[in-house]
């Protein structure tokens, strides 16, 4: 394998209901930095059905080139069809790096493609860098259950591949009118060649709060002691009009469902206010919330690592502090709303 043949940074662009999800735009931002450092092109690879119009956005967010596979067979994501397109394209144009969002689609596709290449794949990366002269990708992620960070390298194979967490990298501000080269490709693949069929797509209509979209999150950890103790988190979230988050321990203990989990193996969040109550602050949790605008930690243990990652910390008993806070917060709000009645 001659590494000189491999050039450029690629981002797999996801498409969902005719839109590009933000994780792909964030990866274009991250990929741009890597490409600039190496002095190479940044390309997006876009696979779908009737998706050509999306190339415009890929350029505006930083790509120089977009490879497009626009065929009816790509109407739904399926591992076998998407994998074929990506493998053919990569074998033909030989990028040195391919980045995928660490979404269910991105992880599924990257795992399959890396096996067939074969090449190394780093999962759930939270930091990316590249060696300027060698093009070696430095992909870092929390390891060993999030107790420590590890930098993973793939020295002997190209392309190097990584899946990257959503909301960790920053998208560039779009540059209207920015454009580039569109390279249209296609695969010869018949429906019968694919062994899976999507029969139906069901959107869950329950009003589950999606914590990755909430402005205010109140998250609780094992320090609350029990499922009953965890109710405190719900009470504060209700009072503030926020969503409920949780540490991994709490989810594994069954106090709340998995879609509330913040962290490496849960959701990455960037709310305007993040409360961490009774959360010790393992790296696995911190990587999922550290970009929140205002982080407030309440914990009994003054040594808890969470106090290194918050803007304001209170060392104290949440069961004393939080009920007081709820009461005084509600008083303060109602003072504003009914100010003509005077102080409550």
């Amino acid at each position: 394998m001659d590494f000189k043949d491999y050039k450029g940074v690629w981002v797999f662009i996801e498409e969902k209901d005719g839109e590009i999800p933000s994780v792909s735009l964030e990866l274009l931002g991250a990929g741009r930095k890597l490409a600039d450092k190496r002095g190479v092109e940044l390309a997006g690879i876009l696979i779908g059905n009737s998706i050509k119009h999306l190339t415009k956005k890929v350029f505006e967010y930083g790509a120089d080139t977009v490879y497009v596979y626009d065929q009816p067979i790509f109407k739904h994501y399926r591992t076998e069809s998407f994998m074929k397109a990506l493998l053919e394209c990569s074998n033909k144009y030989k990028p040195e790096i391919i980045l995928f969002g660490a979404t269910s689609t991105g992880k599924d596709l990257a795992s399959a493609v890396a096996t067939d290449m074969p090449t190394g794949l780093t999962a759930d990366t939270t930091e990316l860098d590249v060696e300027e002269d060698t093009g070696l990708l430095l992909a870092s992620r929390p390891a060993f259950g999030g107790n420590i960070m590890a930098t993973i390298l793939c020295k002997k194979y190209r392309p190097q591949m990584a899946t990257v967490r959503a909301k960790v990298m920053k998208a560039l501000s779009p540059e209207p009118g920015r454009t580039g080269k569109v390279i249209e490709e296609s695969v010869s693949l018949k429906e019968d060649d694919i062994r899976t069929k999507v029969l139906e797509i069901v959107k869950e209509t329950t009003k589950k709060v999606r914590i990755d979209e909430a402005d205010i999150i109140v998250a609780g950890g094992k320090g609350l002691g029990s499922a009953e103790g965890f109710q405190l988190v719900h009470q504060l979230a209700d009072a503030l009009g926020g969503a409920v988050g949780a540490s991994r321990d709490v989810v594994e203990a069954g106090w709340i469902e998995h879609h509330h989990q913040v962290g490496q193996t849960g959701v990455t969040v960037t709310p305007k206010i993040y409360f961490a109550i009774g959360i010790s602050g393992a790296i696995q949790h911190i990587v999922g919330m550290k970009n929140s605008s205002l982080i407030i930690a309440i914990n009994k243990d003054s040594e808890a690592p969470i106090f290194q990652s918050c803007h304001y910390g209170i060392v104290g008993d949440a069961f004393e502090i939080v009920p007081m806070l709820i009461e005084q917060f509600q008083n303060a709000l109602s003072r504003k709303e009914v100010s003509h009645v005077g102080k409550v």
Partner: peptide
Amino acid sequence: SPTIVSKVWAPPKPEGGTII
């Protein structure tokens, strides 16, 4: 194994906030 762990590190401690 194409991937190797080159470095294992504890992330630099953030500055930490104000303790109230």
